[in-house]
Amino acid sequence: MQPNVLSLLVYLGAAVAEIAGCFAFWAWLRLDKPVWWLIPGMASLALFAWLLTLVESDYAGRAYAAYGGVYILSALCWQWLAEGARPDRWDVLGGAVCLGGAAIILLAPRAAG
Rank of each mutant, 00 (worst) to 15 (best):
M42F: 14
W36A: 11
V55A: 00
A65I: 12
A49R: 09
G61V: 02
W37T: 13
W37C: 09
G68L: 04
S57D: 01
L73G: 02
L52V: 05
A63K: 02
L38V: 07
W36R: 10
L47G: 11
A43I: 03
R62L: 05
A65C: 13
S44T: 10
L51I: 07
I39D: 10
P40V: 05
S74P: 01
A66F: 01
T53C: 12
K33Y: 06
L52P: 02
G69S: 05
Y67W: 14
V55H: 00
S57Y: 01
L45H: 04
W50E: 12
L54V: 12
K33N: 11
Y64H: 10
Y71L: 06
G69E: 00
V70Q: 04
G68W: 05
A60G: 11
G61W: 07
R30L: 12
P40A: 06
A46E: 14
G41R: 02
K33H: 14
L54Q: 14
W50R: 02
A63F: 02
A66K: 01
Y59V: 10
L51M: 08
F48S: 02
L51C: 06
G41T: 12
Y67S: 05
K33G: 04
G69D: 02
L38R: 08
L54G: 06
Y71R: 01
D32T: 12
L38E: 06
W50N: 07
A60P: 00
V35K: 11
L52F: 13
S57Q: 01
P40Q: 10
K33C: 14
D32H: 11
V70Y: 00
W50C: 03
L52I: 07
W37K: 03
E56C: 04
W36L: 03
A46K: 06
L51P: 02
L38G: 11
D58F: 11
E56K: 09
L51N: 00
G41P: 01
A60M: 15
A49Q: 13
A65M: 13
G41A: 01
